[in-house]
Design a binder for these strands. Structure first.
Lengths: 252, 252
DNA sequence: CGCCTGGTTGAGAATCATCAACATCTGTGG
DNA sequence: CCACAGATGTTGATGATTCTCAACCAGGCG
């Protein structure tokens, strides 16, 4: 019932009642668990999930080379994963929205391969990995589901590889907007009106572009009437036109 | 004992005695299974692994959107994984050498997300996924190992993302050479003398460069005395210099 | 022998990075 | 409440890296 042992005076803007959320009644369930689990299996999952205090903006969930112990389901907000290159630059490897799982890169070596940082006030469900392994052994559909989640991460990464390798600045940025739009739609949010939680710099570091190029392209989309931008608020005015300029198979 | 029911007149250049190889005596075991399995567990694994006929050069192991059924351990040769982009270009997502596992991208959707094609005469061990799932449920260390393999694939992809996003043509090509060198070393082969199994075009499609650029950079490395090239045969003359040119944290 | 694929090399063009100036936003302290 | 500093974003001018187009060469196979 009381989750706040390590929480204390730290949760200014999240309703404490949220702590009573369980996987059974979480409205993200269908995204984070697209799988048909039996009721008692959901209960088992619930027992291992830890719902901690919310993360403030720019707070770290974990850091590169921290000891790996858990994967996390994003419950609210937005998280970016990034690594620092040999010469000190930041490579953003992904943005994670509610219903998505982060941290699976840590399993291989027992240390996280990326750092994870909140882009805005966020909440996550911590899933201790050794408990998840136990549960996966007992519940085949759980094991299957987790294999699928990891495989999904692989194919997502490969789409990004293709994007970076083959597509122009305009195509990359259009693709990102479409991806965010589609992920919003999955959560029953507007697929045309939303707020970008990340900075232009983050977008550039994700898409392999400089801030200036990101800014220019977004301005251009704005002038062309494809989108309407007010700092981080975006309206996709012409989703079809945007998909055309993205020039990729859009399935996400 | 007899594996060749579907094989017949098809294995011209592989010694038939190879068919007696088992996971227990495979000299790649320590790469493909870095994990301490008990003897009886290895036997169980052996029972589910299918060692089929060899693949001829440019033969497909599977194709994008084929129904997913198995992952494959490369036993000999080299395999490339690739996908075709919306506008018909080829994006190579990885090269797979003996001891490495290919096909895990198919788990998420039940269909392979890439095609896999032999770059030279190759042999693979087929591991039917549903059998692997069963075994993973029974043998915790097996489950753990497979989670780690998938996680490894994720971090490898993320390294490629970083390479594509932040590094110049020279850095990318130097990195690829170093990666191949390191993977050879892991297999107790020369880390300085080897044959590139893939074409210049494949390298370009992997690294997000045109053939011309690949060719030019390789010629330049040759002139600079970093390497010595004779078509596909490569000698890394100055591994340290190459690592400097690569300018990345080289861990693979 | 000659074709065809794969590879090399050159010249010019295009995209994006760099450098620089300036605008805007945020939050802090007077 | 305003002023200011620092961070973040925008816009412009210039330049470098890489792509494109084109010609040419080499080797393998019918």
């Amino acid at each position: 019932m009381i989750i706040s042992s390590q929480q204390d005076k730290q949760s200014p803007d999240v309703c404490p009642h949220n702590n009573t959320i369980s996987c059974g009644n979480c409205r993200l369930g269908s995204i984070c668990l697209p799988l048909a689990l039996e009721d008692d299996e959901v209960v088992k999952l619930d027992e291992i999930v830890r719902r901690g205090r919310p993360l403030q903006k720019s707070e770290h969930l974990y850091r590169e080379s921290d000891e790996f112990s858990s994967v996390y389901a994003v419950r609210a907000g937005a998280i970016k994963a990034y690594r620092i290159t040999g010469d000190g630059q930041e490579q953003v490897t992904g943005f994670y929205f509610p219903g998505e799982i982060i941290g699976m890169d840590g399993i291989a070596k027992g240390k996280y391969a990326c750092s994870a940082k909140a882009l805005e006030t966020s909440a996550v469900c911590e899933i201790p990995f050794h408990r998840l392994e136990e549960l996966s052994s007992l519940v085949p559909s759980m094991q299957r589901h987790f294999f699928q989640l990891m495989s999904q991460e692989i194919t997502t990464d490969q789409q990004l590889i293709t994007l970076l390798s083959k597509n122009s600045a305009e195509e990359r940025i259009a693709s990102l907007l479409i991806s965010i739009s589609a992920r919003n739609a999955r959560r029953k949010l507007s697929e045309t009106h939303f707020r970008l939680p990340m900075s232009r710099t983050d977008i550039g570091n994700f898409l392999g572009l400089t801030v200036e190029t990101v800014s220019r392209v977004i301005s251009r989309f704005n002038k062309q009437g494809l989108i309407s931008v007010d700092s981080k608020e975006v309206v996709l005015l012409d989703l079809d036109g945007l998909k055309e300029t993205a020039n990729i198979k859009t399935e996400y």
